[in-house]
Structures are given as structure tokens and as C-alpha cells.
Design a protein around this nucleic acid. Structure first.
Length: 581
RNA sequence: GCGGCUGUGGUUUAGUGGUAUGACCGGAGCUUCCCAAGCUCUGAACUCGGGUUCGAAUCCCGGCAGCCGCACCA
């Protein structure tokens, strides 16, 4: 049994992860989060919110999970997220139909399926593997399609990423942030991709949770105001160049920016933040690295892109976060499809006084002369220089047609104008998190099986313990009366109420022996157990047990809720929190 | 989607053409003053569908799911 199997087995047994629709045989690519899994996941998300929304100030929005066609035309998902596939009738291999014919026709990727089939047939293209006949081309789009409204309605798609919601709301967001860069917005929610063959548990799902931030920054200023926070943070960097040598370098972020390894401060800050977040939810530092996209794998519009990768036992390095400088690509794309300018006005610190050469065609005269072509002629005139305009008859060519314009109806001059600012299209920095993958990694890195002494020094036995960070553990305190006796149950119940009022996640358990209950809680990662025994009735004190080292202290019942709260959230030292036992 | 392997209580496992073994587990009770103790009782399974057969969980075919490889993975 490898670690993946052990973790998945535990997750299933203890209510973290269940295969969806199991009652009906299950469906690949979907998982249910059980009671503990759901809680753990929410706590990871909560820390993400704390990091990005509260600390960084990138407010959360909530856009629909169903999107309309235009959005995904602009994002490129309608065209680029689907591939024309055709399969060999003989060996069953699937191929990209457009790739098969790209040597035959130059514009292979712009052909539709019928045209592709025609080219394949006419040129007698065969299966590259076995020379067999090829079947018909069909479209495979990774987006789930749906209909909006009754009847034919309108084509809708389940969103394949949450990012588009922030882009579509750009103008509203800009207004909300009083049109001052940088600003950002976040979204945590479900995304959907109809993967061909999802596998590897929760690593590749058809419905998964993303947490994304879209941060809009000044394209001319990619410094980060708070960069000093991470300038000295040492990160495992697996750079483009480092990958050629298969070498991960440990380097402070400040140095990486200075050396030009990371494109700029803003991106480096995001890497620092991601590193901070992942370790806070329990990812082991030396199983975490940042891998730079190689030039050829990076989207053509991106300047620089780094993936946070986590090492897992079975799957090796798994990509869990992508951090990219997407430039102005997305805003430009949406501006194009929506025919709306998506930019922000930036005032100069001092207005610029510029001398411009201005051409002013007299439209009152151009109109009657050129009728419908007048506008095009005027535009052509505006592109000319002084020398050409000074002629008596000016010749311009519009749509291959030559027009002669009398010089006297075109005025031009050098004019001095004051320009106090400009419209700029912000660049987008995008950290994009796969929460489910982080969830799994958190569990795997917390999972440990150790040998401990058994009862009364019998031989050693295995103890499974989930060393989840206290902040993310789905149960924070177990309340255990030592024996199932009413006189112990009553004070235990009263402690349970106190802790719940303090907002702690508690679980009361009086079934089975105390040792069994400790082990049950070790397995689900409960950091502290509070045991009520007969001494409690004498002196109002209880035992608190630490999950990680099984050590115990004695602390008064009075103020127990505050004490546990401090242990869990304030990093209070355990052994000095009470009398050691 | 293609190919290979696999599928027995919640978990894990034995086994066979005649309805299934054990362990852990869960529940009730007894016992028990701190690390999966013990005792009693109890709960719970042959992945689904079709075929062959008097009879299928076992043999055959197909579906589904899991794992591995290929392809795919903005």
C-alpha cells in the first residue's frame, strides 16, 4: 500500500472523501466531500480568503457558474478548448484531425469538421500508427454544454475556470476600486471540465474548486509596494534554465528578480504569497517548489508563468497553483468581442504639453464630393504628412481606388495640446489555485504512521496520525469522559458547550476505551483531546492531550475554552499551558 | 477514448459451479482511573446486467468503477 492508497482509504473510511454517486455505481471524475472533508476544505478556503481577501484586499465576487457563449468565445475556450478528433477504425487511436492534414493544407486549424473529413478523404490520409482507415471527425470540447431557457434557448457552458467572471466585471470593479491601479478581485468556486479520462482521485476532477485572483496592474509599473515582505524569503525555484540542468535552486525572491529569473516584483510577490499560504495550510516546505513554464509551453501572450508544484508519493510533482502574468490579453479579448473599451484612465503626475500635427479635413466640402467614401477619404488624409498635404491636389488611395482632393479644403497645423493622462489597459497577474489538489496534498503530507509503545509496555503498535495544522483540522478538540459514567459525562457535556460557544470545532465521544478514542482522533487529526476523570470532580482540572507527541498536561476547567483557543490559534506553547503529567 | 490488470460487509481478507472465512470496524451491555485491553450479544458483503446451467458470487459476454500504460490535460 503506498501513501496514496493509505490516505484515500482513510479518507473514505473517516468521512473525508467519497466517490460520488456510489449508490448507483459511481461516475469517474466526481467526488463528494464527507463531513470531515468538507470541513477541512472550508478551512483551507477560509485561510485563502484570509490571505487574499482580508490581507491583500482583493475582494471576493460571485459570478454564475454557467456562462454564455460570448464569454467563452472571447476567452478562447470555444475555439481553443475543443479539438477536432478522429479515430482510427482499425487500432482505435485518436488523433487531432487538424494535425493530420496540416502538411496538406496551410489553414488546417480553420477548417470545420466536414472540410477536414473531405481533405482526409481526398488525400487518402491514413492512421499514422497502423495505416488503417480513419473515422469521421468529431468535435471534442472540454466544456460542458447546456441550454439557457426553454426550447432551443441559448447555448450556455459550464465555466471551465472562474477567471472570466472577474474579466467580464472589469469596468464595474474598476469603478468600485475608484479607478486606481493596482486592484484585484477573487473568486472561490466550482469549475467544470469534461476530462476525457479523469483519474488519480481528486487530482483530476470533472467538477473542481478553484480559487483565483485577477489582479490588475499598471503595465508600466510592475513593482510591488510591499515587496520587502518576501524579498528575503528563500524559495525552491525550478527555473526554465534550471529545468535543463534538472536543478532546483534555493534563492531569495529579491535575488531572483534582480537576476531576471522572475520577470518582475509583482509576480515574485505572488510567488512569495503562494509559498506562505501553502505552508500555512500544511504543505511540507521541502516538498514544494515553483516551476517556471518553459518558453514553448507558455501561452503566447504570457510574459512569465510559475506553477507551484507539490511532491506526492504516487504522482510525483503535481501542479497545484499557476501564477501568470497574462498581460492585457484577456481584457483586449473581451474588449474585442464586446466592442467596449476596457481600459482605465491614468492621470500623469504632470500634464504633458505636446505639439501635434493635426489634419482637419473640411467635412462640409468632402461630403458632397465623395459621398459614402468621404469618411474613408478623410481618414486617409489624416494619415498624411505635411509635405503631401501642401500640394494643390492631394491624392489618396482608398480600397484601391484613387481620389483627388483639392488642397484648399484640407487644413492642417501644428497644435499645442495639454494631455493630462491616458487610457491604459492594465496587465493581469493571475494566481490560480486548485483547491482539491491542495486538499489532497494537505492530507498526504499530514499522514503519518508511527510505532508507539502499547499498553503496559506490550510490544509496539502502529499509530496512524494525521498531523494536520491546528488551523485546518476539521475537529479541533475531542471531549472524552474517561469512563462512561454519568458523573463524568455531565462535566464533559458542559465543557463541550463552553468550547462550542468559543467557536471551536469539537467532538464529544464516550464510546469505547479511552485509548481507542485517542487513536480515532489521531487518525482524523484532532490536535487536542480533553479528558474528564475523577480528579476533575475533586479539583476541577482536566487532562489535555497533544495529538503529535501524546504528551499530557493538567489544566483547570475554568477558562478551558480560552486556553484551547490560544493553543489552536495563538501558537501558545503546550507544555507550559498546564502542569505536565 | 484505446489496451492491460482488478472488483467479496464500513475497511481489509479467505474461498468455492450448490448463498461465504477471518480480522479490524460499528452498535448495545458488562468491565475498565489515560493510549486501538477483555467478555457477552448484535450489525453488515460476493460491482451491476445478460447468457450458459437444475443451480452462477464462481464460467462466458457486456456495462460501471478503481488502478496502470497510451492519448488528452486552456
Amino acid at each position: 500500500m503506498d501513501k496514496y492508497e493509505q490516505v484515500i482509504e482513510l479518507a473514505k473510511r473517516r468521512g473525508f472523501l467519497w466517490n460520488s454517486f456510489e449508490l448507483y455505481g459511481g461516475t469517474a471524475g466526481f467526488y463528494d466531500y464527507g463531513p470531515l472533508g468538507s470541513t477541512l476544505k472550508r478551512r483551507i478556503e477560509q485561510i485563502w480568503r484570509e490571505t487574499y481577501v482580508v490581507q491583500e484586499g482583493y475582494m471576493e465576487i460571485e459570478a454564475p457558474t454557467i456562462g454564455i457563449e460570448e464569454v467563452f468565445v472571447a476567452s478562447g475556450h470555444v475555439g481553443g478548448f475543443s479539438d477536432p478528433l478522429c479515430e482510427c477504425k482499425c487500432c482505435g487511436e485518436a488523433f487531432r484531425a487538424d494535425h493530420l492534414v496540416d502538411k496538406i493544407v496551410a489553414v488546417a486549424d480553420s477548417l470545420n469538421n466536414e472540410e477536414l473529413d473531405k481533405v482526409i478523404k481526398e488525400n487518402n490520409v491514413k492512421c499514422p500508427e497502423c495505416e488503417g482507415d480513419l473515422g469521421e471527425t468529431y468535435e471534442f470540447n472540454l466544456m460542458f454544454k447546456t441550454n439557457i431557457g426553454p426550447g432551443a434557448g441559448r447555448q450556455g457552458y459550464m465555466r471551465p475556470e472562474t477567471a472570466q467572471g472577474m474579466f467580464v466585471d472589469f469596468l464595474r470593479l474598476a469603478r468600485f476600486y475608484r479607478e486606481k491601479l493596482p486592484f484585484g478581485a477573487t473568486q472561490i468556486g466550482k469549475s467544470y471540465r469534461n476530462e476525457i479520462s479523469p483519474r488519480q482521485g481528486v487530482i483530476r476532477l470533472r467538477e473542481f474548486t478553484q480559487a483565483e485572483a485577477e489582479i490588475f496592474i499598471d503595465p508600466n509599473d510592475k513593482k510591488h509596494a510591499n515587496f520587502s515582505r518576501f524579498a528575503n524569503t528563500v524559495i525552491n525555484l525550478y527555473s526554465d534554465e534550471g529545468q535543463d540542468r534538472e536543478e532546483v535552486e534555493k534563492m531569495p525572491l529579491g535575488e531572483a528578480v534582480k537576476n531576471g529569473i522572475i520577470a518582475h516584483e509583482f509576480l515574485a510577490y505572488q510567488i512569495g504569497l503562494t509559498n506562505h499560504f501553502l505552508q500555512r495550510v500544511g504543505i511540507t516546505a521541502d516538498k514544494l517548489r515553483f516551476r517556471q513554464h518553459k518558453k514553448d509551453e507558455m501561452a503566447h501572450y504570457a510574459i512569465d508563468c510559475w506553477d507551484a508544484e507539490i511532491e506526492t508519493d504516487r504522482f510525483g510533482w503535481v501542479e497545484v497553483v499557476g501564477i501568470a502574468d497574462r498581460t492585457d490579453y484577456d481584457l483586449k479579448a473581451h474588449a474585442g468581442v464586446s466592442k467596449t473599451e476596457l481600459s482605465i484612465y491614468r492621470e500623469y503626475s504632470e500634464p504633458k504639453i505636446v505639439t501635434q500635427f493635426v489634419v482637419k479635413p473640411n467635412m462640409g466640402k468632402l461630403g458632397p464630393l465623395f459621398k459614402g467614401k468621404a469618411k474613408a477619404v478623410a481618414d486617409a488624409l489624416k494619415a498624411l504628412g505635411q509635405a503631401e498635404l501642401e500640394q494643390d491636389n492631394i491624392t489618396v488611395v482608398v480600397d484601391g481606388e484613387e481620389f483627388t482632393v483639392p488642397g484648399e479644403i484640407v487644413e492642417f497645423a501644428d497644435e499645442t495640446v495639454k494631455i493630462s493622462g491616458e487610457n491604459i489597459i492594465p496587465h493581469v497577474i493571475e494566481p490560480s489555485y486548485g483547491i482539491d489538489r491542495i486538499f489532497y496534498s494537505t492530507m498526504e503530507h499530514a499522514f503519518e504512521e508511527e510505532m508507539v509503545a502499547g499498553k503496559e509496555d506490550t510490544e509496539e503498535e502502529a499509530r496512524i496520525v494525521m498531523r494536520l495544522r491546528k488551523e485546518v483540522a476539521p475537529v479541533q478538540v475531542a471531549i472524552l469522559p474517561l469512563l462512561t459514567r454519568e458523573e463524568l459525562i455531565n462535566p464533559a457535556k458542559s465543557i463541550e458547550i463552553q468550547l462550542k460557544q468559543k467557536g471551536l470545532l469539537v467532538s464529544y465521544d464516550d464510546s469505547g476505551t479511552i485509548g481507542r478514542r485517542y487513536r480515532r482522533n489521531d487518525e482524523i487529526g484532532t490536535p487536542y483531546s480533553v479528558t474528564i476523570d475523577y480528579d476533575t470532580l475533586e479539583d476541577n482540572s482536566v487532562t489535555i492531550r497533544d495529538r503529535d507527541n501524546m504528551k499530557q498536561i493538567r489544566a483547570p476547567m475554568e477558562g478551558i475554552a480560552d486556553l484551547l483557543h490560544e493553543l489552536i490559534y495563538m501558537g501558545k506553547d503546550f507544555e507550559s499551558a498546564g502542569k505536565a503529567l
